[in-house]
Computed example of a mutant assay.
Amino acid sequence: MLIKTIQLETGDMSCFPVCTHPHASHEVTFHTMNTSALNAEELRRENGIVALQAAFSRCVDVLSASSTPKDMAVQVCTHICRCFRVSAQFETCRVAITEVPVILKDICRILYYKHLTRLNCVTVQTCSAFCVDQWLQTQLLHAGLLWHILQFVFNYDYTLDEGGVESSDQSNQQEVANNLARLSITCTARLAGIIVVGTEDQTPDNPNVTKVIRSLFTPFIIKTMTRVTTNELLKTLNCNVENPYLIWDNRTRAELTKYLEEQQQSIIRTGECDPSFGEDFRYSCPLRGTGGGRDICQGLQRTAHLRP
């Protein structure tokens, strides 16, 4: 009955602008699946993944820079993303999702609208859930996921977490941005199969994604991901650091952000982006964003050792 209702609502061109609660069926679908994850399997057997995708695409198509969290399309996207997240627990559902690649493209397209931070949080959580499957990891990479979520990382404000002042994401927009940054860095790690401190579930190792992240975030940051908390890692990425292991400053962040924004605009407008997906990215200064600082330090140490 729910699937039939979703199909009728999606097919009725007058439903969205007229009906006051057309998203109710999608919300009920999520709660039904969330109550018992096995309902996701039944949904798949009844061709529910395709039905959700049709409604999802229709809503994503009407998102814009003027969309607000109260908009019907935003609410429907939120509920359907949650449905996909629950479905990702089952291999047969994940296979069904891979057979409809437009789902991943639409999910990444949502992340283009940075002002919809709460919807973005739900969307990034869905992407993290998909990362339990190596094929979905690769498809998300090709859909341009990194162009979007890595930009969220630089919206993190560590002073809010270290200030000792209690805050709620219901009233504090920076708290929402910080939460989105944490979800994004975790999703990035899961996309590559890197175990983040504080998480127990392991995702498949994906060497291709790891190479991309190593080029964008440096080998040192890759190692740091497995040793420190997400808050500590995000603080490092948003501070100026200059030590024997890493040179990371405003110029480094500006170069990376510019590259990410260019690739994001390209894939949204033309469907194309850097064919290496970031693996060939290089900073203008060879010493920035690399282990070059360590090499210099070691060279100075050797020189000092040779002095009489």
Rank of each mutant, 00 (worst) to 15 (best):
R182D: 07
C81V: 02
G163E: 13
V197Q: 09
L136I: 08
H148S: 08
T138Y: 14
P204S: 01
G164Q: 06
H142G: 10
C187W: 00
L160M: 14
F130R: 09
L136E: 08
T199V: 09
D133E: 06
N178M: 01
N179W: 08
K105N: 04
Q202E: 11
N206V: 02
P101I: 04
S167H: 09
R82T: 06
R109G: 11
V102N: 08
Q89F: 03
Q174P: 12
N208P: 14
T186K: 07
T117K: 03
R85K: 00
A192Y: 10
L141W: 01
Q125W: 04
F90Y: 07
I194M: 12
C121Q: 06
L104P: 01
L111G: 09
Q134T: 14
S184H: 11
Q134I: 15
L119M: 01
R182A: 02
D161T: 12
N206Y: 01
A177M: 14
T138I: 14
N155M: 15
C127Y: 02
R182G: 00
N208T: 04
S87P: 04
V176Q: 10
A88P: 06
S171E: 12
I97G: 12
Q151S: 13
L180R: 00
D133P: 04
Q170T: 06
V102T: 10
A192W: 00
Q89G: 15
N155S: 05
S184Q: 06
R182C: 08
T159I: 15
Q137T: 11
D133C: 11
T188M: 08
C127L: 07
W147F: 14
S168C: 06
S184R: 02
Q134W: 09
Y112L: 00
T186E: 13
N178S: 07
C187G: 03
A192F: 00
T203L: 15
Y113F: 13
A129H: 05
T186D: 06
F152V: 14
L111C: 05
A181C: 13
A181M: 03
T199F: 02
Q170V: 10
C93V: 10
A189W: 07
R190P: 15
I103M: 13
T188R: 03
R82Y: 12
C81M: 05
D157H: 12
V95D: 15
A129E: 10
Y113P: 03
D106Y: 02
C127N: 12
I97L: 11
A189M: 11
A88C: 09
Q151F: 12
V86T: 04
Q137C: 11
